[in-house]
């Protein structure tokens, strides 16, 4: 990596780390959501560094544009008022168990990553958007169609679950 790429990488990594800590630790759900959004933007920057501007664009469009707004609506609809559901601190035991789980998984995986590094090229592969379109409509056509079916089912399922007859209240 060249110097500029390295600097950009560390800036994005810091954004991801800070946003992630806020997303996990904040006692207010709205603040946690803002942390999640900054993490998502940081990951979009990482996609740009990896030479995949299309993925960065999709990340912003799908996650920041759609999923974050959805979660905002959930916070509103579940009446998570200013004090929030997370206002009282969690019992210390729960923190310890959570830390134990993270240590176990993170320890094993980071050991694997550090000690068994696969051969890595220094420059990311170049993929044009045309190749992506061909892949989507030729090799991986079935997956592409199935994901649209899944989205349709999820949408109608959500409408069905949250349905409320008028005047029933």
């Amino acid at each position: 990596m060249e110097l500029m790429a390295k600097i950009a990488f560390w800036i994005y990594a810091l954004i991801i780390l800070g946003g992630g800590i806020v997303a996990v630790g904040s006692s207010s759900l709205v603040r946690a959501l803002m942390g999640l959004i900054s993490t998502l933007v940081g990951v979009a920057g990482m996609y740009m560094l990896l030479g995949t501007p299309f993925m960065a664009f999709m990340q912003l469009l799908i996650y920041v544009g759609a999923v974050a707004v959805l979660i905002f609506f959930a916070v509103m609809l579940t009446d998570a008022h200013g004090r929030g559901d997370e206002s009282e601190p969690a019992p210390i035991r729960q923190h310890l168990f959570a830390l134990g789980a993270v240590m176990a998984v993170g320890g094993v995986l980071s050991w694997l990553i550090m000690n068994r590094p696969p051969a890595s090229s220094l420059v990311p592969a170049e993929v044009s958007i045309e190749q992506l379109g061909h892949g989507l409509l030729e090799s991986y056509f079935l997956a592409f169609e199935l994901i649209s079916v899944v989205l349709l089912v999820a949408m109608s399922g959500a409408v069905l679950l949250a349905w409320e007859k008028r005047g029933k209240k």
Partner: peptide
């Protein structure tokens, strides 16, 4: 390693959060 950091943050959050929306945020991470 950055991806692993995201996984660990999400795992910590899902074990420690006490509301469903907070757990969903961790899953997205």
């Amino acid at each position: 390693l950055v991806a692993l950091l995201l996984l660990c943050l999400g795992l910590f959050g899902i074990a420690q959060r006490r509301s469903l929306v907070g757990m969903l945020i961790s899953v997205e991470l």
